[in-house]
Design a protein around this nucleic acid. Sequence first.
DNA 1: TGCCAGGTGATCG
DNA 2: CGATCACATGGC
Length: 298
Amino acid sequence: MKHEYIYEDVKDFDLEHTFECGQCFRWNRQPDGSYDGIVRDRVVNIRVNNDDGRKDMILSPCSAEEFEQLWMPYLDLGRDYSIIKRQLSEKDPIMKKAIQTGNGIRILRQDLWETMVSFILSQNNNIPRIKGCIEKLCEEFGKLINTSGSTQPFYTIPTPEVLAQLEAEDLSVCRMGYRASYLIQTARQVLEMGGIKSLQEKLEKAENGTQVLEILQTFQGIGPKVANCIALFGAGRMDTFPIDVWVRRVMHELYGIDKKHTQEMEDFAKKHFGEWGGIAQQYLFYYIRERNRKEAEK
DNA sequence: TGCCAGGTGATCG
DNA sequence: CGATCACATGGC
């Protein structure tokens, strides 16, 4: 009998919107609508019982202690999103609509190294293929996770120590193309600076968001966009604003900013969305992709 | 078949 | 600086 943990009456949380808004790559929808996810060396299933508007979140397997220490912060459940949503909705009808569409998105507080790997692989790539590259990488070079009773094996993300010893050809089985050498070089750079813990401390000590981005951009394969994603999803910097092709589309179609004017977009985001830029960006990202998906269906 | 995908690095005016 | 191009891979 698996141990379950029930988090009762969860607010502002939607499984699909949170796990399929492009911020994470190791959560998979199950036939019953629940999600299996791999985080560090844990595997868990999360489902939500929707009872007359009241939602209970059920994690399995999960102890009370594990919930407090791992899942509570990971799922960002300590934050009151209703205040943020209200602030963003005011004075901006476009954002208001986007928030309605992606209602229940939470920004996951992911592992720093995992986000570095994930978003280095994300460049000039599409989400299904990114997921495939990451899974193959874990299968080949990660550690098998002990899940007693599970039919299917799960693996961790390989550490910088493991990846630093490889050559680009070793990764050819993962089909990540030219990004393979970026990954290896970045792993080596991380070791040179004393390991991932050391980088984490460095980021925590940074004076502001700009400095965080500067540090991240010293790694091979990490430019402005990828650095913003790592800062947002892997370092808890909610004040960042990753600008990718989809956000460019939103900024152009909905806010009337020229697609080439990146600086103008950054200034607009800072002024308009301020400290919650990252959350605003996720709503916009989800909104435009959802709209695009529905258009394609027709 | 050519274009696109959560871009970046290198190179050239 | 800003513009331009190559870079692997697979889906449509």
